[in-house]
Simulated assay, not measured.
Amino acid sequence: MAGVWEPGHRIPPEHELMAEYACSRMTVNKAISALTERGLIDRRKRAGSFVAAPTMHRAMLEIPDVAVEVERRGRRHSIEILERTEREGDSDDRRLLAMTAGPVLALRGIHRADGTPFALEERLINLVIVPAAADIDFTRESPGRWLLGHVPWTDAQHRITATAATAAQAAHLDLHPGAPCLSIERATWRTQERITHVRLLYPGDHALSARFIA
C-alpha cells in the first residue's frame, strides 16, 4: 500500500517470506491468499505472485488526470485554486467520502489549457487517510496528479452525466448560464477506505475515450 512495490512487481517466494518474518509456510500462504482475495496480488501458475494493477487500470473507460489530458493535446496546463477549506466533515462530506467523522480538505479549482478554461474541479480529500494533503501547494501540482503519484489506491468508481452549467460554473468556464456540460464524478478507495471524491465539469464538447482489453 505504500507503493514501494509497483503493479507487476514479483512478490518474493514463500520460503524467503518465511525466513524474513520467522513464520510457517501455512501463515505465509494464508496471508498471500487473503491479499489475492482483496485484489492486491495476482497469482500466476508457475510464474509466482505479483502486485496487482489497480482495478481501474483494467477498466475499458480511461479517464486520466486533467493535467495529463491537457498535456496530451500539446497545450500548457495550469490550475487556479479558487477555494481551499480544511474542516470537520459535514453530513454531505461524510456521505461522499463514506466516513463517520474526521477532517476533510475541500478544494475548488479551475484547470486551464494555454490560459483557456478547460475544466472546473470540486474535490474532497479524506484527511484521516491522507493527512499529508493538508500541507501540499496544489497550485504547483494539481490535486489529481499529486494523489495519483503519492497515494496508492485499489478501486475507483465513475459517474458520468450531462448537465447544464449554473451561473457560477458558467462564469468560471467562460460559458453562458445553462450551457451544456459533461460532469464526471470519481471516487477512489484504498481497500475499504475512501480517499477522495472529485467532480470535474467540462464544456459540453469534451470527449471521452474508451479502450477494450482482451
Rank of each mutant, 00 (worst) to 15 (best):
V4P: 00
W5E: 01
P7L: 06
R10H: 11
I11A: 07
E14K: 11
H15E: 07
E16N: 03
E16D: 10
A19K: 12
A19H: 04
Y21L: 07
C23P: 01
M26C: 00
A31T: 12
S33Q: 09
G39K: 12
I41D: 14
R43K: 15
R44P: 06
R44G: 10
R46I: 01
A47L: 15
A47P: 05
G48P: 08
G48S: 10
F50H: 11
A53S: 14
P54S: 02
M56A: 09
E62F: 00
D65E: 15
D65K: 13
D65C: 11
V70D: 09
G74A: 01
R76A: 13
H77N: 08
S78C: 05
S78Q: 09
I81D: 02
E83R: 15
E83D: 13
T85F: 01
R87I: 05
E88I: 00
D90W: 02
D92M: 00
A98R: 07
A98K: 09
A101M: 12
P103Y: 03
L107D: 10
L107W: 11
L107P: 08
I110Y: 01
G115V: 03
P117R: 07
A119E: 08
A119W: 03
E122I: 00
R123C: 07
I125N: 05
L127C: 09
V128F: 00
I129W: 06
A132M: 09
A132L: 05
A133N: 12
A134S: 15
I136N: 04
G144H: 05
G144E: 12
L147C: 04
L148Y: 08
G149L: 03
V151S: 10
A156L: 03
Q157W: 07
Q157G: 07
T163Y: 04
A165Q: 07
A167Y: 03
Q169L: 04
A171T: 13
D174H: 11
L175E: 10
G178S: 11
A179P: 06
C181I: 05
T196Y: 10
R199L: 09
R199M: 06
L200I: 03
Y202D: 14
R211I: 06
